[in-house]
Amino acid sequence: MTSVRRIATRIPPGLATFAVGLLAWELLSLFFPPVIFPGPWTLLERMVEIYSDPSSYLVVAQTLQRIFEGFAIAMLTGTAFGLLMGLKRDAELFFDTWIMVLLTVPSVCWAFLGVLWFGISEAAPILTISLIVFPFVAINIWEGTKAVDKGLMEMGSVYRANRSLMFRKVLIPQLMPYIFSSLRIALSLSWKIALVAEAFGAGGGIGQELINWFQDTRVDMMLAWGVSFMIVMVLIDVLAFRLWARRAFAWRPQLAT
C-alpha cells in the first residue's frame, strides 16, 4: 500500500506523460465507436450530460451514504476486535481463524447472501461493505497493538494511571498511525466493494448504473459514471486524510515543519 502512496505523490513531474497519454487515448478512440471505446473528450461530454440531470446527485448520495455507513461499522467493530486481539492473547488465538475465514469470502458472495437474507434493502450493501472491510481494519489495529511501547505502559502503571487515562493518553496516541492507515484502507476498499454490492444487490446507486449500462453495452456511459465517482472518492481521500494527518501528528518534528 505504502509504495502505491509514495508513487502517487510523484505524479506532478509525470504530468507530461499524463498529457501524452490522454492524447494517445483520444487518437486511439477515433478508430472505434464511442459506445465501445470512448475517448477522454466523449467521456467528459457524457459526464456533463449525467450531472446536468439533478437526479444523478441522488444516485451518488445514495452510494456515498452506504459507503459511509458500512465504513463506519467496519471501523468501529474492526478497531474493537483489533484492540481485543492485541491486548488479550487468548482472544487473538481464538479469533484469528474467524478473521482469516472472513478475509477469504469474496465480496460477490456477501453481496448475494445479503440479497438472499435481506432482499433488496439497504442492509445488503452495508453488510457486504462492513464484512469485507472489517477484517482488514481488525488486522491493522491488531498489528498496531503489537507495536505498542511496553516501557510507556509500565511508566503508566508505575504512576497508577487508571484504565481510561492509559487508553486516552498512552495507548490510543500510539495507535493513531495504525488507526489512520486503517481509515484509508477502509475507505478505499469500501467504495470499491460498494460498487460490487450495488451492482449485484440493492436497488439504486452507482453500482446499479454500472451494471445497467454494462448490460446495454454502453462503455461510454459506464465509464462516465465509474470515472466521475472515482474522482470524487480520490478527492475525499486526499482532502480529508492529508489535512487531518498533518494536524494529528503535529508532535512529530519532521511532519510539523
Binding site: 502505491v4 508513487i7 502517487a8 509525470g14 506523460t17 497519454g21 470499491k192 460498487l195 472515482m230
Partner: peptide
C-alpha cells in the same frame, strides 16, 4: 508508467 500505474490501481475491480 509511474503516471499510469496509480490510476490503474484506483480503478475499481468491477469496472
Amino acid at each position: 508508467l509511474l503516471a499510469v500505474i496509480p490510476l490503474m490501481l484506483t480503478i475499481p475491480t468491477i469496472l
